[in-house]
């Protein structure tokens, strides 16, 4: 069983993703508030995937069985990836599937399975002050993000920008990463390296 102090942040981290996708959905509605009236093929797809993403997110939060929750989260990842694809961000779309659905969630599923939570009631907590405050904070975060999205995008982008076609490709992203953003990029790789070394040191201590 995961210790409580670890389980909560983990669940909170998972919980962020549904909200995230909801905001993406909002952004899309605002971006396309005129286009949605014209039912082009693309818009119908975007609407479909956004609704499916929200559905997956809601199901993920409300299911009792953690494995089912994890599966709904994967559905959510897929829908978000599909939305990225429809917005011409191919690279990010595929990385969303490759990294989140293909690697991170596999490990999550692993952990959940090996924990083998027979008693699912352990996970369903009573409403405590912690939960209440969590709900309040999420509402606050949500409204801040929603307002930002609303005001920054309201009148700017009514349709997909013509340069989106080229910006989302792997060539452009790679060029940017290795020229303009090469320093932060290398810095991030060092941070990741430190994290890996740290994880190995911690794990080795246990076995020595």
């Amino acid at each position: 069983m995961l210790p409580n102090w670890l389980a909560r942040p983990a669940l909170a981290g998972l919980g962020l993703s549904p909200g995230y996708s909801f905001i993406l959905y909002l952004a899309l509605i605002f971006n396309h508030n005129l286009n949605f009236l014209q039912f082009t093929f693309e818009n119908i797809l975007i609407l479909f995937f956004s609704l499916l993403a929200v559905f997956g997110a809601l199901m993920m939060v409300t299911r009792k069985n953690p494995i089912t929750s994890a599966l709904y989260l994967i559905l959510n990842f897929f829908c978000v990836s599909a939305i990225y694809l429809l917005l011409r961000a191919q690279f990010i779309a595929i990385i969303q599937v490759l990294v989140y659905a293909g690697a991170i969630m596999v490990l999550f599923l692993f952990v959940i399975m090996l924990l083998n939570l027979h008693d699912e009631s352990k996970l369903s907590e009573k409403i405590t002050y912690k939960k209440l405050s969590a709900i309040l904070i999420s509402l606050l975060l949500f409204s801040v993000l929603a307002i930002t999205v609303y005001f920054s995008y309201m009148n700017k982008y009514r349709e997909i920008h013509s340069s989106a076609e080229t910006i989302g490709t792997i060539e452009v992203i790679g060029n940017e990463l290795y020229t303009t953003f090469s320093f932060p990029f290398e810095l991030v790789s060092f941070v990741l390296l430190a994290a890996i070394v740290g994880a190995i040191v911690l794990a080795k201590k246990k076995f020595d």
Partner: peptide, 11 residues
């Protein structure tokens, strides 16, 4: 990348 992403889902 598409192929790698899909094969990673095979798990």
């Amino acid at each position: 990348l598409y192929i790698l992403a899909l094969t990673s889902l095979g798990v």
